[in-house]
Design a binder for these strands. Structure first.
Lengths: 249, 249
DNA sequence: CCTCTCTCTATTGTATACGAAATTAAATGA
DNA sequence: TCATTTAATTTCGTATACAATAGAGAGAGG
């Protein structure tokens, strides 16, 4: 369980090497993007659990790309805080701390709520349709019990919403926050009571359709507060327990 | 001027190679960080102008590190939007567009203003002293006509302010925005009328010292609006001019 | 039986070499 | 004289090889 990748060490070893040799001709950027998304999704959907080590060799064998490319991807993931890169020990899926969770949700509350007015102003019929579509997919995933898929789609919903504000910088920031939130939900989430309530997003869309930015903002505020409140934040053990304090002097 | 680095091509060529070979023993991360800061500062202080190409082997010769390390640093800078990495043509200092400038300042307004209340609550005597120190340094730099230094210190001031909120995620975001702002100021800045007025920061510190979060927020709002208003945004030429529209049908 | 130390292996960090793509310059034809 | 095509040079993208380090495991001593 702690080495989720190395289980498949033997998959496509020589085949991978050959494939990548030939692929040199076509556009490598796409391939790297695909791998990036692949790992990112695995982390977000909790198929790679926090703390899992991501060895460069193993990844390069699985994806048939040399370590150089993997390192690039890993660095990108590290800057998004999805993986942690410890200096001489390699990469591992980040294990978000309670503080981090608090910060991320505070950030989301500030930015996403702040964006609602602009979104309500700029939203079009097409956008509404698209959002409804996402909300429906999320509901379906939730019904069929695919929690991780639901979490991913929920993140995509919030991400798209931020994009509609027209501010690319803030949209990108929100996207990063949503990814991290997915990870946080995967760790601290109460499995019985998933992050976003099913009907929440639908209601929000309705408010936006009416062009009521103020109410949308308030709704988003409650929505995010509700998600945060649903987290099971356990006070984590200190790295090195303070035995003196615990056992008296 | 368009190849600001290659002028010094011959500096420390073999010496660099030897040095790095030996330096393998001590911590290489520091060296990379130093190079990163070096380039970052050069961009922020406008010694490297927007559009300037950053050739990998030129940088590797200047800093005495192999291209591999340079690439890593360049990617980090690219993710912070300080340099642009065009697929098959290498790295260059990003030339912020007017839209980007607008987005960045909108983001700063939302986040930095939103943070003021928390900052006012948490600020300590030591923090006040530190901020006053920065404000003084900025004033001095401005008096001696060192605009680029003043811009850098001003960014550091805003950055530190955000850190005091205790929300690391938002603080990092603000730090990135400040770097980009420096670049924007370097491009669109009216040289007669530098971004932050000298007395502004001092006044802000005073409001924070009094613990008046509301007023601090309003002040920051005006402050950022003033900076943005001071920008000389020229409508940029479209990549490919629409000749039909210009010359009639 | 537990703990401490030493060695060895596994994994990362860095440099270098090779191959591909793009831009530039020159040459030739219209 | 200008445009078009081709060749050459420059620069990036990727793989591989080698060096260094941290962690695990075994062995010895208490």
């Amino acid at each position: 369980m702690s080495q989720p990748v190395s289980e498949r060490k033997s998959i496509g070893r020589e085949a991978g090497s050959r494939a990548q040799r030939q692929r040199n001709t076509d556009n490598g950027t796409e391939r790297h993007d695909a791998i990036y998304r692949s790992i990112s999704d695995a982390v977000i959907e909790h198929r790679l659990k926090p703390g899992a080590r991501l060895r460069e060799d193993a990844l390069s064998e699985v994806f048939g790309v040399s370590r150089t490319g993997i390192r690039k991807i890993l660095q990108r993931l590290a800057l998004e805080q999805l993986v942690t890169l410890t200096p001489q020990r390699g990469a591992s899926v980040t294990r978000p701390t309670a503080d981090e969770a608090k910060d991320v949700f505070a950030a989301r509350q500030m930015v996403e709520c702040g964006l609602m007015a602009e979104v309500a102003k700029r939203i079009t019929e097409d956008n509404i349709r698209e959002l409804r579509n996402l909300a429906r997919q999320e509901r379906d995933a939730l019904r069929s019990g695919e929690q991780s898929t639901a979490i991913k789609i929920s993140a995509a919903f919030h991400e798209r919403l931020a994009q509609l504000s027209g501010n690319d910088t803030l949209a990108e920031f929100v996207a990063g926050l949503c990814s991290r939130s997915s990870l946080i939900l995967a760790v601290y989430g109460n499995s019985g009571h998933l992050g976003c309530e099913t009907h929440d997003h639908g209601e929000l869309i309705q408010l936006l359709e009416q062009g009521d930015g103020g109410q949308a903002r308030d709704f988003m505020d409650r929505h995010l507060k509700a998600i945060e409140a649903s987290l099971l934040i356990v006070e984590e053990a200190a790295e090195v327990p303070d035995l003196y304090r615990i056992f008296g002097s």
